[in-house]
Amino acid sequence: MSAEPILQVDGLSAGYGAVPVLREVTLSVPTGTIAAVLGANGAGKTTLLRTLSGLLRPTGGRVLFDGADLRVVRVEGLVRRGLAHVPEGRGIVAELTVDENLRLGGLWRRDRADARRAQDEVYQLFEPLARRRRHAGHQLSGGERQMLALGRALIGRPRLLLLDEPSLGLAPRVTAQIMALLRQLCDSKGLTVLLVEQNVRSALSVADQGVVMSLGRVVMATGAAQLRDDEKLRHAYLGF
């Protein structure tokens, strides 16, 4: 684990129209770690991810990804820099087949051979997808959709993965599998993950860092183990 943060967010503010949603959010994610962003509905977690990837323009502050200011990078250019964002609601293209969705994830890559190799790896990793290559996205189950969205992001061999609610609507067993996979990718490939989750327990089970948001602000950022084990802290910030 390197101490150098791959993602550094300083005083980031954003909102929809005149309504501010993010208020001077500051956080830092070291390379090869998992940071879990936790908080109630409406805390600004999804807005944070959307602002980081430029889908929403920040009204203030800055985002440094690998030392480069992301505010000047077009959304289309993010994958080329090694940043993958899996949006909320799984973000697969429901009208395209599993195979087409995965191909789409690798189209930007110059190294065609490696894009194909990455696709094969995804099929090995997610067995159910391999059996449904020709099925349209809307025919998949919730778990399969999540595998597809995650697999498609991995085809770009990202260095930073922004994941929005990967456990939404999934069986606990599938959630556990996905969390374990993230942990493994971080430890073996040096992947960094910023994970937005409602499912606090499963997120903290794999995360290195817990970032608690409330009403658009970061109210606490600490080690995930501490947040998991310190009952007082957990009770105060996460309500259980």
Binding site: S53, L55, V75, E76, G77, L78, V79, R80, A84, H85, P87, G91, I92, V93, A94, E95, L96, L104, G105, L107, W108, R152, G156
Partner: peptide, 12 residues
Amino acid sequence: FAPEVSRLLGVN
């Protein structure tokens, strides 16, 4: 079908 997702995947 999905302009936002496509942009995130590098499609212009």
